[in-house]
Write a protein that binds this DNA or RNA. Structure first.
Length: 534
RNA sequence: GCCCUUGUAGCUCAGUGGAUAGAGCGUCGGUUUCCUAAACCGUGCGUCGCAAGUUCGAUUCUUGCCAAGGGCGCCA
């Protein structure tokens, strides 16, 4: 890597100038502004104080020192601004990027092994199995699934998991609502009012247990909906099965053994406030029934069988739940680092200019199926992944529909389809791509050609950042930028036209292939189709 | 009152301890004898919520304040 060579040279030069230990603030980065060269270092700014010189002055000395070093591809060194040293490289360094991309291909390019096989358990969606998934829940599905894909590409071993709350009050109420509708009655107070209850009640066989049948029906629905946007799970964990297995009791014993459980007011408490929670929490109510929390602790403990660290992806309305769960898991003997919670902000849906309140019980929701039907799976999934999970998302259905032919998803997919169109046209004209090692890439000097290669170079660090920050939207941003670079290149650099020099044509065909690899990797991580024609 | 997230262009949102802060949409104008015009090019558009602090340098980090959304059950 060119960067490493430059880092090395900078360190050597600094030592020659009397810097014994290079400060950690010294960086070698790609400047945002192309006028500032291909690589840039702030070394003289950081080290100036150390050597009691002014940065600009030191910069001149550093520049002189660096001139002596023989760094591959470097054509020129500039000193600029307050004392940055900018490295201007010949295009050949980017040609090396093309060779790497094509050589490694879709399977191996941009596959940084930062995870080292670390198993990460991701739990997401986990909606109550009492009805279809509403459109807001789709955000966690898209997020969790893409995060898993990104982690896997970065060398982690992710495990996707859905927790089924198939016992307790809500399921009882749900069963009662189904029975009531089947008998033609009103649902019980606080029951489920949604239209789907009546429809499902009609489907339900007379002999069926409404709770069991209803939960099955819901899960089937949710699985279908999510898989239509390419979201899948490795494990569906049943709360009921877990409780039946005795896991809840053994979790309670383990907590008791830790010495943080006590009895008060006829209830059993966990002293979570010892570890930063607002107050202690009840594990077993005065009536002898466990709260939601106890089986959930048992479940989280169980998840360590399927992950070195476990991550909950939760909606903002559950953020208060995190400190108590973390406390409980630490009492159970897990390390604080081994539990992570990602709090996603909510999705607001706008239709006809008005916000649609998403309530399953009141039945005022828009389901994920309806959204997918209106926008299509690719648009829906892309929309969920276009912005940071830390921000409240507003999806105006009418806007996304109206923009259907010119929205960011199609922009990216079109770039991919265009590449295949070029391939088809090339074979129609009997233009064949020669093996890469027989192709001279030196002709690729147009800024638009080089820009495509710069974006491809960045993919690896984008993935590392996306995995580290649990931020799939970085991939979305990157793939949009690559598509843009490709479209620009396509428009300004003819490829198949008869007046193009054959050698340059070959180089450009390989640049197109490298672009295809990048787009294909990006779209796959986002779970969006990469069409060959549109 | 306490806790979490957010505040960047008319709108929806990216982005960054650094040198002139970006994209899409929307506005206005332009590009097709030749690889897909679902594209491209140009044009406008900003006190990066406010104020202090840390730093050679802050829109980015810290603190306070203001505003918006969410949460503070022996519900799940």
């Amino acid at each position: 890597m060119v960067r490493l060579k430059i880092v090395e040279a900078v360190h050597t030069a600094l030592r020659a100038l009397g810097v014994e230990e290079v400060p950690s603030g010294v960086t070698v980065e790609r400047p945002a502004n192309p006028d500032h060269g291909d690589w840039s270092t702030n070394a003289s700014l950081v080290c100036a104080k150390l050597l009691k010189k002014n940065p600009r002055e030191l910069g001149v000395e550093l520049q002189a020192e660096l001139e002596k070093a023989d760094i591959p591809h470097v054509e020129r060194l500039d000193i600029a601004g307050p004392g940055f040293i900018n490295f201007v490289l010949s295009p050949s360094w980017l040609h090396d990027v093309l060779l790497t991309v094509v050589d490694q291909g879709t399977d191996n390019f941009a596959r940084p092994n930062v995870g080292n096989g670390l198993e990460i358990n991701l739990e997401f969606v986990s909606s109550n199995p009492t009805g279809p998934l509403h459109a807001g829940g789709g955000r966690w599905g898209a997020f969790g699934d893409s995060l898993a894909r990104i982690l896997a590409r970065c060398g982690y071993a992710p495990h996707k998991e859905f927790y089924i709350n198939d016992r307790g009050n809500q399921t009882v109420l749900f069963g009662q609502s189904l029975s009531a509708r089947k008998g033609g009655h009103d649902v019980p107070p606080n029951g489920y009012e949604g239209q789907y209850i009546s429809e499902w009640a009609r489907e339900m066989p007379d002999t069926a247990d409404p709770v069991v049948w209803g939960i099955e029906r819901s899960l089937h629905e949710v699985e279908q909906s999510l898989s239509s946007m390419h979201v899948s799970f490795d494990t569906w964990s049943s709360e009921k099965a877990l409780v039946d297995s005795g896991a809840m009791e053994s979790a309670l014993e383990r907590l008791r053994a830790s010495g943080h459980v006590y009895e008060k007011d006829d209830a059993t408490w966990l002293a979570t406030s010892e570890l930063g929670d607002d107050k202690d929490r009840v594990l077993i109510k005065a009536d002898g029934e466990p709260t939601y929390m106890l089986p959930d602790i048992a479940y989280h403990h169980d998840k360590y069988n399927r992950g070195d660290i476990i991550i909950d992806i939760l909606g903002a309305d559950h953020h208060g739940y995190v400190p108590r769960m973390r406390a409980a898991l630490i009492f159970m003997g897990h390390e604080p680092k081994e539990y992570e919670a990602i709090i996603g902000q909510n999705v607001k849906l706008i239709r006809d200019g008005e916000e649609v309140k998403l309530s399953k019980r009141a039945g005022t929701m828009i389901t994920i199926d309806e959204l997918i039907e209106e926008l299509g799976p690719d648009v829906t999934r892309f929309a969920y992944l276009i912005q940071s999970i830390d921000t409240t998302q507003t999806i105006d259905i009418d806007v996304w529909k109206a923009q259907a032919s010119e929205n960011p998803v199609f922009y990216v997919q079109y770039a991919h389809a265009r590449i295949h169109a070029i391939g088809r046209e090339a074979s129609k004209r009997s233009i064949e791509r020669k093996p890469l090692d027989q192709v001279e890439l030196a002709g690729l000097v147009d800024p638009h050609e080089l820009d495509v290669l710069r974006h491809l170079l960045e993919l690896e660090e984008v993935l590392v950042a996306a995995a580290r920050d649990r931020a799939p939207h970085r991939v979305t941003t990157w793939v949009r930028e690559l598509a843009s670079a490709f479209h620009t290149f396509y428009n300004s650099c003819p490829i198949l036209r008869s007046d193009v020099d054959p050698e340059l044509q070959q180089a450009r065909l390989w640049l197109v292939e490298a672009s295809r690899i990048g787009l294909s990797i990006g779209l796959d991580l986002l779970g969006v189709e990469a069409p060959e024609e549109m």
